[in-house]
Design a protein around this nucleic acid. Structure first.
Lengths: 215, 215
DNA sequence: TCTTGATCGGAACGGATGATTCCGTTCCGA
DNA sequence: TCGGAACGGAATCATCCGTTCCGATCAAGA
């Protein structure tokens, strides 16, 4: 259903438009990661070096922009999970969490706890994420590296915990987050070998999804 | 400097006023703990079963109310820290963190990461908190229960991490928080005995204060 | 060079939210 | 029965932010 006559491609300022396109996406990712999804559109435009109108020309509304970024964040983290399995590190969960923390600009964790509307494509991506995480957990469990009741929901909870909304420049914060992560991972190992009893039940995936979606 | 003539105490509706006073304070504590300090004044009034004007009659402005609650939260947590030392539990830090998590309505952690103006009385309370925490840490370190470079800043960071702003009913969330806490504590123990190396440096108290105050 | 259409950036618009104030009403103690 | 202290919530006022509008720019083709 493409328009048949190549429509005299690239009249006007089409090249600049495509460049802005990328700039807006990257700016949105960074700004949302830092300030959460209620960062004003103008902040994104400013970061992208662009007028607000340019943001609206590509995405009809702020909701659409947020939706695009949510999807992007999910795809990113799914990608990380899959790469990690291939790398076969000592602990795949540990490597996954580390990688995620190192990627400074993921809006994924900052959205945690906000009830946002679910859509079919987000649901579908979340399911793929679940599958990827369960693969990691299975690999680690076979090696005795995580507690027997550890779930994909626990991994998401860990992400939420390890990325608090401290108003610290991400670069500076990395060291602090890594320290927390190491404490968490050390605890995981110790509980896996039965050296400590834990209070509280696992967070199931369904609960996690429920906590984070609207209706 | 008290007014000399007992001023014909309690004309008008003074008793109701005192009752409201308490109600407002408690409502503010709960609402701020749940929604953070930008919860609207009307939410606090509603929770207290009172009109907005009654809130403004006791506190000149929302800033004053927030300030009062910040101070209250600090005093609360200082009190917990001191009680814990007297209880002489196996690990004072562990007991302190558990107690803090159990007190559902502390606005302390929800303010974390917001840069709020510092005032002399807040500074002074923060210093007392630092002292109390350092006592805990010293006790535990003597027993080999925490890593040798563990600091009061780390404890504050742990609080921030363990109380994410998940939009979960506090009652339901307790179990999830305890699970995370146990992972953290298990990690602390394991690192204390040198069983794991940790990346990242300690968060100093000065850094913590700096991250959380305005100018 | 001139025309034209795609884009641009940012000012202007409009709705929402929330702090603060105002005011008519209610209640207690004298 | 009065008077004043308090009350609750409507009205006011400012701010913030999503969205739209418009004159200026730019680049390809005539």
């Amino acid at each position: 259903m493409e328009s048949v006559s190549q429509p005299a491609a690239d009249r006007g300022r089409a090249k600049e438009a495509r460049a802005n396109d990328r700039a807006v996406l990257e700016a949105a990712r960074d700004v949302f990661a830092e300030q959460g999804f209620d960062a004003p559109t103008s902040a994104i435009a400013k970061r992208a070096g662009v007028g607000v109108a340019s943001v609206y020309r590509r995405y009809g509304s702020k909701d659409e922009l947020v939706h695009a970024l949510r999807l992007l964040a999910l795809e990113d983290v799914i990608r990380i999970a899959r790469e990690v399995v291939d790398e076969r590190p000592e602990s795949t969960v540990a490597r996954f969490l580390t990688r995620h923390l190192e990627e400074a600009a993921s809006p994924l964790a900052t959205t945690f706890g906000r009830r946002l509307p679910t859509t079919p494509d987000i649901d579908e991506a979340a399911d793929r994420l679940r599958g990827a995480l369960e693969t990691l957990i299975a690999v680690d469990r076979a090696r005795g590296l995580v507690p027997s009741d550890y779930t994909a929901g626990d991994v998401m909870m860990a992400i939420a915990h390890l990325r608090p909304h401290l108003a610290i420049a991400p670069a500076d914060a990395t060291g602090l987050h890594l320290r927390q992560l190491d404490l968490y991972l050390a605890g995981l190992r110790q509980i896996a070998v039965g050296a400590a009893v834990q209070r509280g039940a696992a967070l199931t995936w369904e609960e996690w999804v429920g906590f984070n979606s609207e209706p």
